[in-house]
Design a protein around this nucleic acid. Structure first.
Lengths: 152, 152
DNA sequence: TTTAAATAATACCTGGAGGTGTCATTTATG
DNA sequence: CATAAATGACACCTCCAGGTATTATTTAAA
């Protein structure tokens, strides 16, 4: 149910990257990120490792380690992020889920839906972390504004 | 993973209604629908019951029974269908999944994403079964064009 | 050199969407 | 009335995304 466009995992990846974009030079520990985004801690840790393997961020091990965005904010689009998180099928999906839609007879929704898909794609492709940072209306969970939640 | 907009169940509901719209007066048996759409038979049966309880279709029991669309094709929008299938959260969902996005600080993607959500909503609201029928490029699986698949 | 604070690896757990199996009920028709 | 062809009800199974648990490794700094 529920009309999701992104999987929870992708949503997390987007949040994380958006958050880390606030200061692209800073080394954020998983704990820093947890304190601000409240993504389930162990799952967050797992995702950070995946993100770092993907090359979008680099990880520094050991004490005072953490993660840092690996390239210029203007070089990272939201689509890049959704891709490393595994969501990348929007482009060739039929509204009705018919396999043959694209190359045989097109389904009744083909053109209308193609426009929707295109608009999603445009937004994801054209929006970079740079732009998100500039937009500046950040909406993270602040450390102090919340009821305490146990980490483990 | 995979960027889905509709759940499989909703996708099935859309296919089924689209198919039944071809002849709005006809009583289709679950078998008819299965032969054309190849939705897993027992799951299809279950969905048909749900659809008929929702009021979008009516069911006729007994021999020669089946299902028929319950009202004028022009009165059934795709949004109506997605709703009965349980997918109805698109309207108030934040890009990043932040609960507070709408009524507190708006997230950095708020306006861009609102446009996307609106375009999806527009398509689903404005497209009726009537229109799909007129579009006429139907893409069902024909009985003869397929390798035989066991029903049970 | 020891310790503590960080990430990495890996295996396991869990809920729910999607899918099956079985039996009960309804009804047209011979 | 008996039968066959349809839907209805309901319990069960399975897989995997999302989430946990545990142990290993790396490294700054006391």
């Amino acid at each position: 149910m529920s009309f999701m466009i992104f999987s929870k995992t992708t949503e997390y990846a987007l949040r994380i990257m958006n958050f880390m974009a606030m200061d692209e030079k800073k080394l954020y520990s998983a704990n820093d990120i947890y304190e601000n985004l409240r993504i389930p801690f162990r799952y967050l840790r797992k995702q950070m490792t995946i993100l770092s393997k993907s090359g979008l961020i680099i990880s520094v091990q050991g004490k005072n380690g953490g993660y840092r965005i690996s390239k210029s904010l203007s070089e990272i689009s939201l689509l890049d992020i959704t891709r490393v998180a595994g969501d990348n099928k929007i482009n060739n999906e039929c509204f009705f889920g018919f396999k043959s839609c694209a190359f045989e007879k097109k389904c009744a929704m083909h053109y209308k839906w193609a426009a929707v898909r295109k608009s999603i794609n445009n937004v994801l492709t054209s929006t970079t972390l740079e732009e998100l940072k500039k937009t500046g209306t950040h909406n993270f969970i602040s450390k102090n504004s919340l009821i305490f939640t146990k980490k483990d």
